[in-house]
């Protein structure tokens, strides 16, 4: 599973894309957030952290599959 990263999350992880090993067993948004928080504790200090699936905001209980475009969305600040 690949996760796209932007803004401060790209800086925290040092990558614009993370490959998550299949054996991590991640299949929900909640599990992904929890895995990322353990791997990169600095993510936990952000004001908010959302997951987008195929360009839409996802909910914690939503299922994830490898063919989706998954992205980590830190607090937005456009405008």
């Amino acid at each position: 599973m690949k996760v796209l990263l932007f803004g401060i999350t790209r800086e925290i992880t040092g990558q614009s894309r993370i490959n998550i090993p299949e054996n991590a067993g991640i299949n929900t948004v909640k599990a992904l957030k929890s895995w990322l928080g353990q791997q990169y504790p600095a993510l936990q200090s952000l004001s908010s952290l959302a997951i987008a699936v195929d360009s839409e905001y996802a909910q914690d209980e939503d299922a994830l599959t490898p063919e989706q475009e998954i992205a980590l969305i830190p607090p937005v600040s456009g405008g």
Partner: peptide, 20 residues
């Protein structure tokens, strides 16, 4: 809601706006 981010650069440092 729109996923756009801005980083502010000051004389001495920089921060991602709203991040923390």
């Amino acid at each position: 809601t729109v996923p756009i981010w801005k980083k502010e650069f000051y004389d001495d440092n920089s921060v991602w706006v709203n991040a923390h």
